[in-house]
Simulated scan of single mutants.
Amino acid sequence: MLFSLFFTIFASVCSKNKTAHLLFYYKIHNGLREISVIGGGSWATALVKILAENKIRVYWYLRRQLQVEAITREGRNPDYINFAKLDTDYIEASTDLDDVLSKCKHLLFVVPSAHLPAVCQQIDPQQMEGKIIISSIKGTVGPDNLLPSAYLAKSFSALQVNQAVIAGPCHAEEIAAGKKTYMTVCAGDQVLRTALGNALASNYIQICESQDLLGVEYAAIFKNVVGLVCGMAKGMNYGDNFIAVLVANAIHELETLLHALGLDGARIGSSSYLGDLFVTAYSQHSRNRTFGVLIGQGYNVEQTKDTMSMVAEGYTATKGLHDMAAARGLNLPILNTAYRILYNYMPVKTEFKLLERSMI
């Protein structure tokens, strides 16, 4: 009661910007208790599972009514990691995007990067005023190759203090199975980082906090390209020795990219960087690696897309990062190889012979 009175009096004498910042602190000082989630894929399902287990009320937007009905009735997403049991006491699933967005202040976007513009176009920017926007999307967005957080900020005039990012290293399948997982929560504001971290932490989820939103987002996008190329190598029966050298060179390319972007302070050896890259490069759960394996086995891009039931973010990320690197005059052989194979339709075996010569 005293805190509320103090806030009311103090806010009345503050400038508009300071009042907005104080309001943000007032809203979350007791922690995150409810959240709206936009997206119905495997990663969104895994995050919803964790949040509901932690007694966070989740308002969940999904495109398909059949998904909503199955989740409400059975506590399972029929399309993605359907072996994961969801606590429906804390989940309200809906196909009504406006209604889901109106439920609470915290919004978590977990859609493929290629679909984000279409989702944002359905949202009235006025409806987003004062919202806390969290993203867990691993691909560049739109013709300007924006980071997901930057695209959301631009679309809805979001303040940086009201933004956060959730990153890996983690796969949805292992979260669904309750296996020990490390997750990175990024936000410029300590209070938001703590609130979001507490909402996700559990006996099998270890939270790592970071203020490095840009670096972690770029690393999360780049590692999907690396996963694709490692998968191509696997599909062509290259061995572990070659793939180890491929990953080592990928680390160098990531450092080069981050330096060109002015992100020299990135802790490249941390789990949110190399941990995320390694799990995508080597894990059988990596959809990007699986996409690459099919390409390496001789499937073309369209055949590979048709074969897979889930989106491989590395496909669109390859073009976004390639365009960005080319504009800065960077020579990134692994990224260039992925681009020529996926977008210039060059023979994968020929491109890998060229790649072999460029690696050190």
Rank of each mutant, 00 (worst) to 15 (best):
V245N: 13
S210W: 07
L200F: 13
S286C: 05
K18M: 14
V216M: 10
Y204A: 06
S271D: 04
I205D: 06
Q284M: 14
W60R: 06
T181D: 13
Q297N: 09
Y182T: 15
Y25A: 05
K223H: 13
F242V: 05
Y282Q: 12
G188Y: 03
P333S: 01
L200E: 04
L23Y: 10
K131G: 09
A220T: 11
S36H: 04
I38A: 01
D144W: 06
P125G: 10
L261A: 04
R357L: 15
S149A: 10
F83E: 10
L51F: 06
Y151P: 09
K138R: 10
A248W: 03
I251G: 06
E34I: 00
R63H: 13
E174C: 02
Y151H: 12
S113A: 15
T181H: 08
S286R: 08
F109V: 04
N288I: 08
R357T: 14
P117W: 02
C208L: 12
T194A: 07
F83P: 00
D99V: 01
Y26W: 11
F83W: 08
F291W: 03
S113T: 04
L147N: 02
A176T: 05
F6G: 07
M324E: 15
L108F: 09
K234I: 08
V279K: 09
A114N: 06
I175H: 07
V348M: 03
V279G: 08
R57F: 02
I35S: 01
A187R: 03
V185T: 05
V245W: 02
N77P: 11
I205E: 06
V119A: 03
L196I: 12
V161R: 11
Y25R: 13
T194C: 02
L342F: 12
F7G: 00
V247T: 14
R340N: 14
I28G: 00
K18S: 10
I243L: 08
G320S: 14
E209N: 08
R328A: 13
K27M: 07
N249Y: 09
L263C: 12
A84W: 05
L258C: 13
L62A: 12
N224G: 12
V119K: 03
A325G: 14
K349N: 08
I123E: 07
P112F: 01
P333F: 03
I56A: 00
S42H: 03
S309Q: 13
E255W: 00
S113V: 05
N54M: 03
Y90E: 01
H171N: 10
D144V: 07
A233C: 11
G142L: 06
A11N: 15
K18A: 10
N54F: 05
T256E: 10
A195E: 03
D323E: 15
V247S: 08
T290L: 08
V48P: 01
V13I: 15
I166G: 02
L51R: 01
N249S: 14
I91N: 07
D87H: 09
L101M: 09
L5Q: 14
